[in-house]
Computed example of a mutant assay.
Amino acid sequence: MEPTIKYARQELGAEKIAGAGYCFGAKYVCRFSKDKKLDVGYLAHPSFVSHEELGGITGPLTIAAAEIDQIFTAQLRHESEDILNKAGQPWHISLHGGVSHGFAVRTDLSNKAFKVAKEQAFVQALSWFNHYM
């Protein structure tokens, strides 16, 4: 990611760069949100993001979380709220009821509840990016 961010800033003249991380990609959005390498971030059903990575963000961050998630558990979600409060950056967490980990990228689209959760998670990212970019 770092060479891509550098290229976008230096060669393309990007003034702001947003990052979206789904599942394991969430930790990289957090890592590169440190020191303004990324300006704004979005995470969907994050996996294995350390407290230090989350607490080190230097820009706005939003998270789309699943109610049923053995990785980003309710306890970890609540701990994340405390960490984000201390980070002092704008943040937001949406909890999507009745869906499980991975809902924002792989879900049964024939199930209306699953489909709307996936679509709302996407709209969440777009809205956040539009506001902060």
Rank of each mutant, 00 (worst) to 15 (best):
Y7P: 06
Y7N: 13
A8I: 09
A8Q: 12
A8G: 05
R9P: 08
Q10S: 06
E11Q: 15
G13M: 11
A14Q: 08
A14C: 05
E15W: 09
K16H: 07
I17D: 02
A18S: 04
G19F: 03
G19A: 13
G21S: 09
Y22S: 11
Y22F: 15
Y22L: 11
C23D: 13
C23P: 09
C23L: 11
F24H: 15
G25F: 14
A26G: 14
K27P: 11
K27H: 14
V29C: 14
V29Y: 12
R31S: 10
F32A: 08
F32D: 07
K34A: 15
K34W: 07
K34G: 10
G41E: 01
Y42D: 07
Y42A: 10
S47C: 07
F48R: 14
V49P: 00
V49H: 01
S50V: 08
S50R: 05
H51W: 03
H51L: 10
E52W: 02
L54N: 00
L54W: 01
L54Y: 00
L54C: 08
I57N: 00
G59A: 05
P60T: 03
T62N: 09
T62R: 06
T62A: 15
I63H: 02
I63F: 06
A64G: 08
A64D: 12
A64K: 08
A65G: 15
I68M: 09
I68D: 15
I68G: 04
D69C: 12
D69K: 05
I71L: 07
T73L: 06
T73F: 05
T73R: 04
Q75N: 10
Q75K: 14
Q75G: 05
R77W: 05
H78N: 10
E79Q: 15
S80V: 09
E81Q: 13
E81Y: 06
D82S: 12
D82L: 10
L84M: 03
K86T: 10
K86H: 05
A87M: 07
Q89G: 05
P90V: 02
W91V: 07
W91N: 09
W91E: 08
W91A: 10
I93T: 15
L95G: 13
H96N: 15
H96T: 01
G97P: 02
G97D: 03
G98N: 01
V99A: 00
S100P: 02
S100C: 04
H101S: 00
F103Y: 05
A104M: 04
V105G: 04
L109C: 08
L109F: 15
L109N: 12
